[in-house]
């Protein structure tokens, strides 16, 4: 499995979701829809299917974090699967809305 590091692009093995890693602790592992996420150019393993328990979905343009905020990803393409790291669901990162400054 590829080491997760900032800038890495991953896609879901079970839905259309894609993410870019913003920050991640060493050794973290990401899943989407219950299945390990794969490299942007990799093929999904045969038989991979969306786990109904992890089908909350992820939205394009939103950032997702773990409880400690030590892991953060940007969803670059929406999907039906929800994101999790090391078995715990990621949460939507609430950002303060700022006025347009340029």
């Amino acid at each position: 499995m590829t080491a997760i590091k900032p800038g890495l692009k991953l896609k879901s093995a079970v839905c259309s979701a894609e993410v870019m890693v913003i920050k991640a602790p060493a050794g973290a592992s990401l899943t989407c829809g219950g299945a390990p996420m794969i490299g942007a150019k990799d093929d999904a393993p045969a038989g991979a299917a969306l786990d109904p328990q992890a089908a909350g979905g992820c939205q394009v343009g939103k950032r997702y974090v773990n409880a400690e905020q030590s892991l953060e990803v940007l969803c670059t393409k929406a999907g039906e699967g929800s994101l999790a790291a090391d078995g715990t669901a990621l949460e939507l990162k609430e950002a303060k809305k700022l006025p347009s400054s340029d």
Binding site: P6, G7, I22, V60, G61, K62, R63, L74, A95, K97, L98, S100, S101
Partner: peptide, 16 residues
């Protein structure tokens, strides 16, 4: 790239 990406993600909401 990391500077500019951080700036945009920190200040702009996608498709807002």
């Amino acid at each position: 790239h990391e500077n500019l990406v951080s700036y945009i993600l920190g200040t702009v909401e996608f498709m807002s």
